[in-house]
Design a protein around this nucleic acid. Structure first.
Length: 573
RNA sequence: GCCUCCGUAGCUCAGUGGAUGAGAGCGAAGGACUUCUAAUCCUUAGGCCGUAGGUUCGAGUCCUACCGGGGGCGCCA
């Protein structure tokens, strides 16, 4: 289906070119043509303010330019009329016939409605969640998960071949601590008098795993190294994380093990390349350190530094610690090097706000390696603040780090208390840059106060009509779309915006746009549903057939939108 | 102190440099079910878009400064 704003912009471009070659407009470089949906019906469907922008370079009045443009506008089947308004806007009105034809077009595209061609033949990758496998998935990570998965769905809709990847941080210090923590729990299960220290993971889930281990191995592991426990708990975590994510309809195609970068030597190759390119030096302190900082520093041995100050960083960053173990930055750079080498056209990286500095360092790493980082796009999503409204005072009480008390803090809990759809919707419906306040009380509401069900209910209502029609043996055979009225056209106008929404969401890496579109679309639908009845005695048969066909198209649109959000499409509430 | 994100209705949030009516949901006040299920619809009230300057035909949107809040500034990940 057509992307109407883009098509309209093309018309204007053609008109300007024609006007120039006819000598009606002076020569100038034609800018990108802005086309905006209008806010008021009296301004038509789309508005083009380009004449105002051209006033200077053409040395003419905006309205005069607009006059000339519309004189040269080529004919298009989707435009019924256009006119000049205000200080020089060109307003376009969509053709009713065209809109009516879209009903069939929508139905025939079905589940692929508005699949675009901008990504055809291109590979995209979305890396998201990538939480350390050291505990359950937390609500903050879930936000990244929902954003990432929805982004992947939108990229697919844009035509890309998409891979969803999870960077599994199964190397490094934290995993060792996790293994050690499990060992302590294991020994405790065997009755030994040992305690966790403050650095250890305190979560109860380790007690359960320890019990399992005792059952399986008895006391055979008493003298085993932490690695043995790490391997065991890692497998458990892997399964747990996948299960938690699957509950909200998120499945990764690939789990990339950080471990593998050490095993295949990529980490050291990366370091060697950075060294060869002259970005690494060995020193106790970084080059630009002040005497004051040096006196505070405890470092006494040589480490390897990545000279990020060459890229404008405030200080250099350690790549390899004095003990010979890399910081996590080096494998992270190696990972992205690997990613780029895998040949993706687009790589989206969904990260929490706490990784703001880290991704800069990685980007500099790509530059230092001489790799092209232009395909990499980072979505930095801000934190989620969880609150719960006190029913007595109405005050919002902040919930902080109460994993141990365990209410709503993990993804598993959230899903249990609400629903997968509610979790997905509520974490998607914010711009990634917004610091959201997540009111648990609002999300768990299963009633009409919860906007989650507003969109789904539109789909349900369509299904209800078809159910009833089927019972009565009524079909849309031979439906005549010319019988549709203004109300139905209003909905179709909104429906054909979907393509532009997908395009905008993909281009700006803002998947929340689809959630707001869904709300808008349902907001147009419901009043129409109330007015435009199908199976009523006073509705003539031929009109009823046309309307039934119309609701078929509406169902297709809602199905598509809900699928893009990773939500279910219920047929009954 | 530096970097970064955010200040829009009572609350939670949208808002491509465009039209002298800045939107949605929730909350508040009032109304509509003998109907294809009302998880719906229709009214009403509610705003110096943090503050002050600047850029231009035009600013909630871009720039600067300030104020307020989140996050980051480890030889942790």
């Amino acid at each position: 289906m057509k992307l109407l704003p883009k098509e309209t912009a093309n018309l204007v471009t053609q008109a300007i070119k024609a006007a120039q070659s006819a000598g009606d407009l002076p020569e100038f470089d034609i800018p990108a043509i802005p086309i905006t949906p209008t806010k008021h019906e009296s301004h038509g469907d789309y508005a083009c303010p380009v004449a105002m922008g051209l006033a200077k370079s053409a040395k003419m009045k905006p309205r005069a330019i607009a006059e000339i443009i519309i004189k040269h506008l080529p004919h298009a089947d989707f435009i019924e009329k256009f006119e000049i308004a205000g200080s020089g806007f060109i307003n376009f009105y969509l053709s009713s016939n065209f809109l009516k034809q879209q009903v069939e077009a929508i139905i025939s595209e079905g589940e692929n409605l508005f699949t675009l061609d901008i990504g055809i033949g291109k590979k995209a990758q979305v890396e998201f969640v990538s939480a350390n496998p050291t505990g359950p998935i937390h609500i903050g990570r879930t936000r990244g998960g929902v954003i990432g998965d929805t982004m992947a769905r939108l990229l697919e809709a844009a035509g890309y071949d998409v891979q969803r990847e999870y960077y599994f941080n199964n190397a490094g210090n934290q995993m060792r601590i996790l293994g050690e923590s499990l060992k302590v729990r294991y020994l405790q299960e065997l009755g030994q008098d040992v305690e966790l220290d403050d650095n250890h993971y305190q979560g109860d889930y380790l007690i359960d795993y320890a019990k399992e281990l005792v059952e399986q191995e008895k006391d055979a592991l008493v003298d085993a190294e932490w690695v043995v426990f790490k391997e065991f708990v890692e497998q458990k975590m892997f399964k747990w994380i996948r299960k938690s994510l699957k509950a909200i309809n998120i499945e990764h195609d690939n789990f990339f093990n950080e471990d593998s970068l050490f095993q295949n030597g990529d980490v050291w190759e990366t370091l060697a390349e950075l060294e060869a390119n002259g970005y690494v030096y060995e020193a106790i302190h970084w080059k630009g350190i002040t005497e004051e900082e040096k006196s505070k520093s405890k470092a006494t041995e040589l480490a390897k530094w990545f000279e990020t100050t060459k890229f404008g960083d405030e200080k250099d960053r350690v790549m390899v610690k004095a003990d010979g173990v890399p910081t996590y930055t080096l494998p992270d750079i190696a990972y992205h090097r690997n990613k780029v080498q895998r040949g993706f056209d687009v790589m989206v990286n969904v990260l929490g706000a706490d990784h703001g500095q880290q991704y800069k360092t990685v980007a500099w790493g790509m530059e230092a390696l001489g790799l092209d980082p232009t395909g990499i796009h980072v979505i930095l999503n801000q934190f989620v603040r969880t609150v719960i409204t006190d029913p007595k005072t109405g005050e919002k009480v902040e919930k902080k780090g109460s994993t141990r008390r365990g209410e709503y803090d993990t993804l598993d809990d959230l899903v249990e208390w609400t629903s997968a759809d509610a979790v997905r919707y509520h974490l998607l419906a914010y711009s990634p840059t917004t610091h959201i306040t997540f009111d648990v009380g609002e999300v768990i509401k299963q009633n009409n106060e919860n906007p989650v069900y507003y969109i789904q209910n539109a789909h349900v209502r369509c299904c209800g009509i078809f159910r009833e029609a089927a019972e009565r043996g009524f079909t849309d055979d031979g439906a005549d779309m010319s019988l549709l009225g203004e109300d139905e056209l209003k909905f179709i106008r909104k429906a054909v915006e979907l393509g532009r929404v997908i395009e905008a969401a993909v281009e700006s890496y803002e998947p929340h746009k689809i959630a707001f579109y869904g709300q808008d679309l349902a907001g147009v639908f419901h009043p129409i549903y109330d007015k435009v009845r199908v199976l009523h005695t006073e509705v003539p048969q031929d009109v009823a057939k046309a309307r039934l066909r119309f609701y078929k198209a509406a169902q297709v649109v809602f199905h598509r939108v809900l699928s893009l959000m990773g939500m279910t499409t219920p047929e009954r509430m």
